[in-house]
């Protein structure tokens, strides 16, 4: 049984207009997303701004209530629950199993609490006795490689990277089964980014973490994830094991994304195709395949008929009418 199974998840925001605030349309921020995360696996959710990746993660954390769909979560030694329809009250005991690492290490720590209190807050609100909390705090500080003296300091005494370690320690405090990491390194300096990426890799190895890694940086994603799901305007266009996706993308959008990333190698330049146009507006997505106005391989069918996700021979899924015939370029 997979740890998490998301099925046809939708999150729509109504657009109101006029004096009577009538609903005149809907922003389909997430429009039918399905994926699974196995135990111990890291799935990356990538895409450009407005693609709905953050909305998906917030729905899983139930910071947002989905419009429809199912989010089946099966904790170890537990029964499967559908997080999508769970009332908020019943969500609270489940919270300990799903924790989050935030993007902004400055906003995610309460400036008025000492680091020790920040890290142990999840333990405290879940009724862990004080002695046990102290012990666990020491473990956690060691785990994220922070000096034990940090616990009596306030967040303002730490750099961005160190704050991110504190945030990670807090997320790990309750032994969660799933970590949702929302752009955890994108606010950091390059030299610090590397430390946090390594720390995440370490934690995956040591603790067998399962992670949903939400990111826009395809380079970072290649380092940390086992599988990658690419989103475009509220839908997943391709899911595949990381290496396969980078070496041989099956969706033209994946190809365009990979081609757009500037590689830190001056000898590899000037031979890439740049995707034209702009990301579609999720309030008015194009008919058919949402990517068709920007796709160099568009045929008539793409303009009218929306492709569904279909399995590929390499163990992935892709939603493109021409997936079988196209030879797309990856990076290697």
């Amino acid at each position: 049984m997979n740890l998490l199974e998301v099925q046809d998840l939708q999150k729509h925001y109504p657009i109101h207009a006029g004096l009577l605030r009538r609903e005149v349309g809907r922003v389909r921020a997430v429009d039918g997303v399905s994926f699974q995360i196995a135990r111990g696996e890291t799935l990356a959710l990538v895409g450009e701004s407005g693609c709905g990746k953050t909305t998906v993660s917030r729905c899983i954390l139930r910071a947002l209530t989905p419009t429809s769909g199912a989010i089946r979560f099966t904790p170890e030694n537990g029964r499967a629950v559908d997080l999508a329809t769970l009332p908020k009250r019943q969500m609270r005991p489940l919270r300990r199993h799903i924790q989050m690492i935030f993007q902004d290490p400055y906003a995610s720590l309460n400036p008025r609490m000492m680091v020790g209190d920040i890290i142990t807050e999840p333990l405290k609100v879940n009724g862990v006795p004080a002695a046990e909390r102290r012990e666990r705090l020491m473990e956690l500080l060691e785990l994220v490689q922070m000096p034990p003296g940090s616990r009596t300091r306030f967040p303002h005494a730490f750099s961005g990277g160190q704050r991110q370690r504190i945030g990670i320690a807090r997320a790990l405090a309750l032994h969660p089964q799933l970590i949702v990491a929302d752009e955890p390194v994108s606010a950091l300096d390059v030299s610090v980014q590397a430390q946090i990426i390594n720390l995440l890799l370490d934690l995956q190895d040591r603790l067998g973490l399962s992670m949903l890694f939400v990111a826009h940086d395809l380079s970072v994603v290649r380092h940390v994830s086992d599988r990658v799901a690419v989103m475009y305007v509220g839908r997943i266009v391709e899911v595949a094991p990381t290496d396969a996706l980078y070496r041989a993308p099956r969706h033209p959008y994946t190809e365009a994304l990979l081609a757009a990333v500037p590689a830190p190698d001056p000898n590899r330049q000037h031979r890439r195709r740049v995707a034209q146009g702009e990301v579609a507006d999720p309030a008015r997505p194009p008919p058919g395949c949402a990517f068709h106005p920007r796709c160099p391989y568009t045929v008539d069918r793409c303009r009218t008929e929306r492709p569904e996700l279909a399995a590929t021979e390499s163990g992935g899924w892709v939603s493109c009418h021409r997936a079988r015939e196209l030879e797309l370029a990856g990076v290697r």
Partner: peptide
């Protein structure tokens, strides 16, 4: 710095070499 930059050409689960401390 060059060794610390995550690369789109990375091997799966490839670690980066790091610069200690912060700026």
């Amino acid at each position: 710095l060059l060794r610390a930059v995550p690369s789109i050409l990375a091997r799966p689960r490839q670690r980066l070499s790091t610069i200690g401390g912060a700026v």
